[in-house]
């Protein structure tokens, strides 16, 4: 499977990465180089193998009490905000 320029533009869009037009072709080449190397995974017999989704064996995800453990400190939450006002994050207009 070869990654064409159309796919690169689509994936960049999905990833919300602005990709200048002159970077599309080089990026396609770079990704194809990496993906060609990855293709060797097709040699592995994976018949009947369960996918490994966690590095921790025999441990189910723990549940915790559904209670507030931290919060009520808007100043701390907003401390690193690029833009804030009256205890809120200020973001670009979302709905026209």
């Amino acid at each position: 499977m070869s990654i064409d320029e159309k796919t690169v533009r689509k994936v960049a869009k999905l990833a919300r990465l602005a990709l200048p037009e002159d970077r599309v072709k080089p990026m396609a080449d770079e990704l194809n180089g990496i993906m060609a190397w990855i293709e060797q995974l097709n040699e592995v017999d994976i018949e009947g193998v369960e996918p490994m989704t966690s590095a921790v064996e025999g441990l189910s995800l723990p549940m915790r009490e559904d209670v507030v453990t931290a919060g009520d400190d808007p100043q701390k939450v907003l401390k690193n905000a690029p833009k804030s006002e009256d205890g809120f994050f200020v973001v670009p207009k979302v709905v026209e």
Binding site: A12, P51, M52, T53
Partner: peptide, 26 residues
């Protein structure tokens, strides 16, 4: 990020991500 988005995107998930998780099990 682009590789990750590509291998998780519709149509490629089984061919790449699921296969890699099975190889990881091996």
């Amino acid at each position: 990020i682009l590789i990750g988005t590509y291998v998780l995107s519709a149509g490629y998930y089984d061919a790449y991500y699921l296969r890699a998780q099975k190889v990881r099990q091996r």
